[in-house]
Design a protein around this nucleic acid. Structure first.
Lengths: 334, 334
DNA sequence: GGTTGGTCTGAAAGCGGTTTCTGGAGTTGT
DNA sequence: ACAACTCCAGAAACCGCTTTCAGACCAACC
């Protein structure tokens, strides 16, 4: 940014203005189109800009305009296959509105997470926050900062912060309905992170499931295929005729284990996933699952944040519906 | 950033200084520890900061210091499972050095890519660029801008820009050596994007392979499991006894197809991957492959960029070695 | 006791843009 | 021909912070 020894000197707006024989104000006006400028001067300015290779300094613009031209996204885990696709969509939406995207990862570390949000708030116009486990009070405190904030995959009742998420409850209800319809009466749920909202929403669906005759037992597991692999065997000790995975990875991990144990799927046991990561080409398995509209999720999230920045946004939480895909791993129980 | 109607007013350094009864300079000194300040004043400042909830404005700091405290990363495709892990490591390294990470995605769109790099250059202290296909001349032009730049997974001979990448050539040579040792004489390579450096490096290994008796035919394919699935059948028309995938996804896609076609692996045909995405729990398949140290790659990349920013960096391109993992999909040919 | 020297603080000058304000030139109308 | 506008360009203020610079204060020393 500044001129350092050995680096080509930075070109500033005043370099351009002297080269073009106009004032800095005029250069600014030409470049931003904020006011009419006589065409001969416009030409001179453009010429000088090209000649000198001038690029406006983003920090100075940010300071002067009172906007950074940047939005921040905080996710718990970049390596979770769920997020990259969402980020992709967010990035393209905000880019279309002329903003850049800053990404941070919290690793689910609560102390760090708080710092990161604060940090994002001081260098971004708005923040998209995905924090499945942050305590409600802390969330409320951050939201009260008066800084544009959108909650992602998390709905906090009573908080007026805009939020967007997937209807996990509805999705899991569909899965249960499907299994109940096939005749299942007992199922085991390989649970994700206990404290997470996403997991709680899924679990909430099991109450509804009881209404149509399906009893679901919750087993500790995790969110990875390895966790699914490790937890699968325990299901065999129960009377469950179906395994509901917290997500596709868990389900595929469980499938992997079941295959080793010689358990036929869906003959002996049905298995369902969640998320639809579309790994069938990889996994050689057409998993029955429900899909998250990840692309739309990211797009809508970006749009809500943008709208919040421009007009202000005041609407109910957005829930995107999930869609059931009945494929090869579910069937009527023996 | 600026005070907008309906938002709590922004607290600036001068608010703090008047509240604490000191000058702005003193506040700055206390907060940054850049000079000794009498302890009673230090206390007053901290108190006022806490009271008002002051957070320094990042743009103003950037402008005054001549540093943004931000680095930028440009990747071709966020959804590629390769990158998230790398980004994770980069993010954590630069964070440890007090910098934030900006992420952009080029979609391999050449025109866009150029703009994005320029954009990153005007708002980041340094840029980490992953662009497998950008023409050499354009790369040279960007590098000559005098802005700190590190090339990622791409080595351009004759360019003094620091770069870090994986020894794809060595990795593929190991694969070929392994197959040759098993007795294979003919193999088919399901090729990735033709114009990419990563693909070219792999192909380059096939010349070396000829030296130890393995002839590799290159077949157009792509980089996804779907592409692998689609391309697999064509191999059966050749006399190849092994399929080398451009990456693990391609290999797994091919495996999926071979299974459908009733071809035994590794009995009838050996299959090897590349990258080691560790999908075995998902894919129920222990793929013979070579692994990329993705975590180290990201970490080293971040460190090189950081070093470049602080001291300047002038060293040869870094090549990280790959490691061969012989697993269940390779065996001696019939 | 009057320099000298060393600390610590505040005033002020940037950093590189944007935007308001001001004034000169050119039009229009009477 | 002169007042009243309009239009456009430049000067200057400002965004919020860092850092230089100069001055105030106090201790030490000759």
């Amino acid at each position: 940014m500044q001129n350092r020894p050995g680096r080509p000197p930075r070109v500033t707006i005043s370099d351009v203005s002297t080269a073009a024989g106009v004032s800095a104000a005029t250069v600014s006006r030409v470049l931003n189109g904020t006011a009419r400028v006589e065409s001969s001067l416009v030409e001179k300015v453009h010429h000088a800009v090209r000649e000198l290779g001038y690029r406006p300094n983003a920090a100075a613009q940010g300071l002067a305009r009172g906007e950074w031209g940047t939005i921040g996204v905080l996710v718990p885990d970049l390596a979770n296959p769920y997020f990259p696709e969402v980020l992709k969509a967010v990035s393209s939406v905000v880019r279309a509105h002329g903003r850049r995207m800053m990404v941070m990862e919290s690793d689910e570390n609560p102390a760090l997470e708080h710092d990161l949000v604060e940090d994002l708030m001081r260098c971004c116009d708005g923040v998209l926050l995905c924090s499945p486990r942050m305590p409600r009070a802390e969330l409320a405190e951050l939201a009260s900062r008066g800084h544009p904030l959108v909650l992602f995959n998390r709905v906090v009742p009573g908080l007026s912060t805009p939020s967007i998420s997937v209807d996990f409850y509805g999705g899991m209800t569909q899965v249960c309905g499907h299994l109940a319809q096939l005749g299942h009466r007992q199922a085991a749920y390989l649970s994700g992170p206990a404290a997470s909202w996403a997991n709680a929403e899924r679990v909430r669906a099991f109450e509804a499931a009881r209404a149509f005759g399906l009893e679901v037992t919750v087993l500790e597991c995790g969110a990875t295929s390895q966790a699914g692999y490790d937890a699968a065997a325990a299901v065999l000790d129960t009377s469950a005729t179906a395994i509901l995975g917290y997500n596709d990875l868990v389900a595929l991990g469980a499938l992997s284990r079941l295959r080793e144990l010689g358990v036929a799927v869906p003959g002996d046991l049905s298995v369902t996933g969640f998320d639809d990561l579309s790994l069938e080409r990889v996994a050689h398995t057409n998993l029955t699952t429900v899909s998250v509209p990840r692309d739309e999720l990211g797009r809508r999230a970006g749009e809500i944040l943008e709208q919040l920045l421009v007009h202000g946004y005041d609407a109910d939480p957005v829930y995107l519906p999930m869609q059931l895909h009945v494929r090869d791993t579910s069937a009527a129980p023996r």
